[in-house]
Design a protein around this nucleic acid. Structure first.
Lengths: 212, 212
DNA sequence: TTTTTTCCTTGACATAAGTCAATGTTTTTT
DNA sequence: AAAAAACATTGACTTATGTCAAGGAAAAAA
């Protein structure tokens, strides 16, 4: 597979190693809304997202989804659970038609972990995930709803053009009502404006940054 | 230093490597309440806690501390920030008189990261931290105050004997009032009882587990 | 285009947890 | 042992955000 070579994590492998990897892995296709694994499942495979998108979320006491992260192609999914030998800590659901490389974890560990290049890549991947987790904590624990929204406008303002308010609200783990009210407030304060096509335009960057 | 050998992360080093490590590190002493680093600081050193305790917290918009984690001897502190070259994401404050091994990070990276044993140890440490972060998310985002308290009773019940309610409340990031009210409710429901010496005794484990 | 469905907005109300304040109880200091 | 400080409990109130409901706007389907 040429595609494996293009995955950051495996880009440093030589041909022989790629052959080995090929033998312990298989490409699987999934449709949007299919579940890759559920919170609590026991991990057997390591997944690499080749194509599509995958969202990861937890479920709270009321059965509501708490969005944690969206994976894009190239991402190593849930390697943590393997190392620790614990059940998956969250549920992963495809949000578009996707392909994953499914790797036999036990074989991978045996053959590849002694390779320093690979270890370094795994460290990098873990650190990237680490950072995601810290951002989640920042977002969910430290920020108010207003601050979350201000942050999202500043960092992902362009997404307003493509996403519905309900989708943004679910990324931020707030209700659409709260999002709507806050956006109105920001507009009235003259901090932002939105044109007909749901494009957002920042008028007072300072004021938004003040919220964080 | 004999003590370095006893740190899990460096236990696999040979004498020559230990010598090298010695050259790029130094032992520092701190008193309780001293700050090792602030959220936002730029990391230069990697720290290993040799003795004492260190708590890590973030500060919210009202200036209140949000407790994240307590380190005990042997813990690698905040290695993430180094790899990513980002400022520390939280503040670290000693909670008792402590000693840390302060390691020159740049030198460490140069000399040690090619060693597969060390990489593996770093991976393990990262994963341990990863797990801590997931637990924090679980605790702060998914659980209600009641559930947090039930979980704490089930998992750390013995700590009631040694900690004040204010300390427990601050670990759980709730107010002492909420803790007090919830404990009364649990007592009235006949799920727990507490003797004169602040020892807790679980009467209905099932009921507590139901809360999670 | 018309109809249907989904989405957005707004108001009224609910809820969980925090805040403040008062009083009582431990623990620590003197 | 007395005094001071820290801690715990309880009630009344506040606050941020969620919930429910209804009407209008936009998007999708017919």
């Amino acid at each position: 597979m040429e595609r494996i070579k293009n995955i950051a994590c495996f880009s440093k492998l030589n041909d022989e190693q790629l052959e080995k990897l090929k033998k312990i892995s298989v490409v699987k296709k999934y449709n949007a809304k299919e579940i890759l694994f559920y919170e609590g499942d026991t991990p057997i495979y390591l997944y690499v997202l080749l194509q599509g998108t995958l969202k990861v979320y937890k479920t709270n006491h009321k059965g509501q989804q708490i969005f944690l992260h969206q994976f894009y192609p190239g991402g190593l999914v849930a390697e943590l659970a393997h190392f620790e030998n614990i059940p998956y800590p969250a549920t992963a659901e495809f949000t578009s038609n996707s392909e994953v490389l499914r790797i036999d974890y036990a074989a991978l560990e045996k053959d590849f972990f002694k390779n320093p290049e690979i270890s370094m890549e795994i460290i990098k991947s873990l650190i990237a995930k680490h950072r995601i987790l810290i951002d989640i904590i920042q977002k969910e624990v430290v920020l108010t709803a207003d601050a979350k929204i201000a942050k999202f406008i500043l960092e992902n303002g362009e997404l307003f053009a493509t996403l519905k308010n309900t989708q943004i609200a679910s990324i931020l783990n707030i209700t659409p009502e709260t999002l709507s009210r806050t956006l109105s407030r920001f507009k009235v304060s003259g901090w932002i404006e939105m044109n007909d096509k749901h494009d957002i335009h920042i008028l007072d960057k300072m004021a938004l940054e003040e919220m964080l």
